[in-house]
Design a protein around this nucleic acid. Structure first.
Length: 458
RNA sequence: GCUCCUUUCGUCUAGAGGCCCAGGACAUAGCCCUCUCAAGGCUGUAACACGGGUUCGAAUCCCGUAAGGAGCGCCA
């Protein structure tokens, strides 16, 4: 059975890259009828926060990516890691390291300055029992380092990149247990994947060069490592890493901006994954067509323009109820239900983001003159007889669009664009938008007359 | 610095030696439809990073260069 997982660290908001990783793993599990697990990697108490852990759940649920079973928290699994540490200690695969962060830092810097790889120098690798005792006596709290073999290589088959091989000699001994006794990422991550029965891990390419370390741990512990697929990173439009500074928003922020989860999901689905699927699709369809073999190796750009397109499709695809719920925050307080529904029906095809909804709400329900959205101010001038005919029609027939147009047509002879354009401009302040019939009905006679009068030229 | 990854239209991508003077989708332009917008239909513009090889033949294989990215953390 396929078992995948999403294993975020609760040290920040879920960003686009994380969201896509979660999506792909979810899709794979759902496609295979397997399981999608959620594991919170909170071994680093200083960086982790409960608020972020909560936000992760909220974001995942909002995206529609439900997980199976209980959420696993690494902070509650220290006993499991302790066992594994002991196994490695007994096997002599690890050793205590008494170097302080400061010492390591200095070493790193001098290695870098000398043009060498900044790796652990191996200072504590061959300490005698006495030397260790001395350091213990000094009160130094050791970390536990994994003894990486001097020779040999680690090979594995990456689901996306194919055969990979790394020389052990290029890998420095790394810490698997911090001085405070907590497990570090390389360690707890692979141990838990194996113990939780995870079969496939789709993760960011930033983990590719670290995979050998984790495989080394798994081998030392005689654990079955999952298959890895390293997906390319998502970048900003200029190819630079996606960052807050580059304008990248978190999932929660995008949601707060009014973007629909299905729009996000559709955009994410196509980044780094090729598919013959076209148009907006729901999660089950996406899962059905998801294929790890179609994962792409090159980085993909996050295009806000494309997101807007998906969002437009997503808004159009909303049912009347969903659309109402989405537009509600932009509607005037206390608007009655049937009017609200009529409004939604009238504008749904013409809005993409909440601001668009707010704009049309202002046009239809707002008092006074209408602000043109941009460009030269809409100062239409209706000829007096044109306006008079329109106003008379409104007084006689009420907010009846066809009665209005027929009356004006009869009175002025205007037809086609010459008839509709001036009316649209006078009524809404802009030269495009939803069908005028429903708009007029929602607007009501009084507002319509006021606007026609305000637009009347000499 | 060392190791690793990547490079096809504006964007997402197809392409695993001849099917490719490179296909699709979105974006974009024009036309049709139409009161406008949206939707829909049709048509168009638009790309193999560069330089060497290998081969009868290369987007596809090899080498190099350039550009971008990742890792080398008591972060994940």
């Amino acid at each position: 059975m396929t078992v995948t997982r999403f294993a975020p660290s609760p040290s920040g908001a879920i960003h686009l890259g994380n969201a896509r990783t979660a999506l792909f793993n979810w899709l794979l599990a759902r496609r295979d009828g397997g399981q999608f697990l959620l594991r919170i990697e909170d071994t680093d108490a200083e960086r982790s926060s409960e608020a972020y852990a909560q936000q992760i759940e909220t974001d995942l649920e909002w995206l529609g990516l439900g997980w199976d079973g209980q959420i696993v928290r690494q902070s509650a699994r220290s006993a499991v890691y302790a066992d594994a540490f002991e196994t490695l200690e007994r096997a002599g695969r690890v050793y205590p390291c008494y170097c302080t962060p400061l010492e390591i830092n200095i070493s790193r810097k001098s290695q870098l300055a000398a043009g060498k790889p900044p790796r652990y120098a191996g200072t504590c690798r061959h300490l005698t029992a006495e030397q260790r005792a001395t350091r213990e006596a000094e009160g130094r709290e050791p970390t536990l380092r994994f003894r990486v073999p001097d020779d040999g290589r680690v090979e594995f088959l990456d689901l996306v990149h194919g055969e990979q091989a790394f020389q052990c000699a290029d890998i420095g001994d790394f810490i698997i247990r911090r001085a405070d006794g907590t497990a570090s990422f390389f360690f707890s991550n692979i141990v838990d994947d194996a113990l939780m029965g995870v079969t496939t891990v789709l993760r960011g390419e930033d983990h590719l060069s670290n995979t050998p370390r984790q495989l080394l741990i798994a081998m030392a512990l005689d654990l079955k490592a999952p298959d890895y697929g390293h997906i390319s990173l998502i970048t900003a439009m200029d190819g630079s890493p996606l960052s807050k500074r580059a304008g990248a928003k978190s999932v929660a922020e995008l949601g707060a901006d009014g973007y629909l989860p299905i729009a996000l999901v559709n955009q994410l689905y196509r980044l780094g994954h090729s598919s013959d699927l076209t148009g907006l699709q729901d999660l089950p369809t996406l899962a059905q067509h998801f294929n790890p073999a179609h994962l792409v190796r090159s980085p993909a750009r996050w295009d806000p323009v494309q997101l807007a397109v998906w969002q437009k499709d997503a808004v159009h695809a909303l049912s009347a109820d969903e659309a109402l719920a989405w537009m509600r925050p932009q509607l005037p307080q206390g608007l009655d239900e049937s009017t609200a529904r009529a409004f939604v029906a009238a504008v749904q095809a013409n809005v993409v983001v909440p601001q668009d909804v707010a704009d049309w709400a202002a046009v239809i329900f707002g008092e006074g003159m209408i602000q043109a959205e941009s460009g030269p101010p809409a100062t239409p001038t209706l000829s007096p007889d044109f306006a008079a005919a329109a106003i008379t029609a409104l007084r006689t027939h009420g907010a009846d669009w066809s009665a209005l147009t027929q009356a004006v047509k009869a009175a002025t002879g205007a037809k086609g664009p010459a008839l509709f354009k001036p009316l649209r401009l006078a009524l809404t302040g802009r030269d495009h938008g939803p069908e005028l019939g429903p708009i007029l009905a929602l607007m009501g006679v009084e507002r319509a007359i006021a606007r026609l009068e305000a637009s009347t030229g000499p």
